[in-house]
């Protein structure tokens, strides 16, 4: 079998492949946001961090020739944005949502500004692990070409869930997120915890950006993000602040995003705008299905400004 004509099998393969390829930025940004929100703050600026991380990662990878240096630079830049957000929000009477929106615009703006000279050059890509070596269907093999960052992201989701559940750090973050007063009574400094939770969240979002520019689609341009950073923030609420659910939600979004092109490629081409809306329709549907008129959002950290 030369595997050339796979017909309708192309759709599930594209959804699996799309889930793996497209979901990684969602995983990183939503895990970052999950950590930040569990500490009691919302950072809406992660879209800006993602775009800036994409630019910084691409630029550093181009100059050093090492994509991993790019990832490190993106994480560092993301951490800086997180620290800025955390520091601004620790000042009295500062609203975290407003600061987030400001930082989103700021991050995108300076990424465009510094990114100008990097639209043209070609930077080295991150390596992929060929998990499809066992199959002789080239389509499946291509779909199972998995990037290292995807694996890291998946492991990180489980690690973060374990951290929240079983470690001292996780407990501290949760206490600060659920009750500032209780945290103070325990002798913790809520601002300090939130500062570093936001910084770590920013670093993760930066890595998500580096994945965009260094692996898939694999080049820096100003339209690279198309709102993934914002969608990932919404994913966290959808995932009920649970890191493992964040992973599933990200995979679902990635797979649903691949549906539109895949259906067109097998000849279902009427109404493709509708298929492109699939991820959003799916989110709305799931949110409606899991909502409850009688109780507040379950799993929400108590100190979160949107649930107060």
């Amino acid at each position: 079998m030369n595997g050339l004509d796979i017909g309708w099998w192309g759709v599930p393969i594209a959804i699996i492949g799309g889930a793996i390829r497209v979901s990684t930025p969602f995983i990183f940004v939503s895990l970052g946001e999950c950590l930040t929100e569990r500490s009691g703050r919302i950072n809406l600026g992660l879209e800006g961090t993602l775009v800036f991380g994409a630019m910084a990662g691409y630029a550093v990878a181009f100059h050093t020739g090492s994509p991993w240096a790019g990832v490190a630079a993106a994480a560092l830049a993301g951490m800086m944005f997180g620290l800025l957000h955390g520091w601004l929000c620790s000042l009295p009477k500062v609203n975290d949502i407003a600061v987030g929106i400001a930082l989103m615009l700021f991050g995108t703006g300076i990424a465009f500004f510094f990114g100008k000279p990097y639209i043209q050059p070609v930077a080295p890509d991150l390596p992929a692990i060929p998990l499809g070596w066992w199959t002789d269907i080239p389509q499946l093999e291509a779909a199972l070409r998995v990037n290292v960052l995807f694996v890291v992201g998946a492991i990180l989701a489980f690690a973060m869930a374990w951290m929240f559940k079983a470690t001292r750090i996780g407990l501290i973050v949760r206490v600060v997120g659920d009750s500032t007063d209780a945290a103070r009574a325990m002798g913790l400094d809520p601002n300090w915890v939130r500062l570093w939770s936001t910084a770590a969240g920013g670093a993760l979002a930066g890595i998500g950006g580096a994945y965009l520019s260094l692996y898939y689609p694999g080049s820096w341009n100003e339209g690279i993000s198309s709102g993934q950073g914002l969608m990932a923030v919404a994913l966290v609420i959808f995932a009920r602040w649970n890191p493992i659910n964040c992973l599933w939600a990200a995979l679902l979004f990635g797979g649903a995003g691949a549906l539109g092109p895949a259906l067109q490629s097998v000849g279902v081409s009427e109404g493709y705008y509708l298929f492109f809306a699939a991820p959003y329709v799916l989110t709305l549907g799931l949110l409606v299905a899991t909502s409850s008129p009688t109780q507040a959002i379950s799993g929400a950290p108590g100190e979160l400004s949107i649930t107060k």
């Binding site: 050339l4 796979i6 594209a14 492949g17 390829r21 497209v22 341009n221 490629s265 493709y272």
Partner: peptide
């Protein structure tokens, strides 16, 4: 085989479209 992305510039969707085309041969 043509795939419309619906936008003049939409990096991820363009990449997905190319992958879908390659998958279909």
């Amino acid at each position: 085989q043509v795939i419309f992305t619906g936008e003049w510039s939409m990096a991820v969707k363009e990449a997905e479209a190319v992958n879908a085309l390659a998958d279909q041969g």
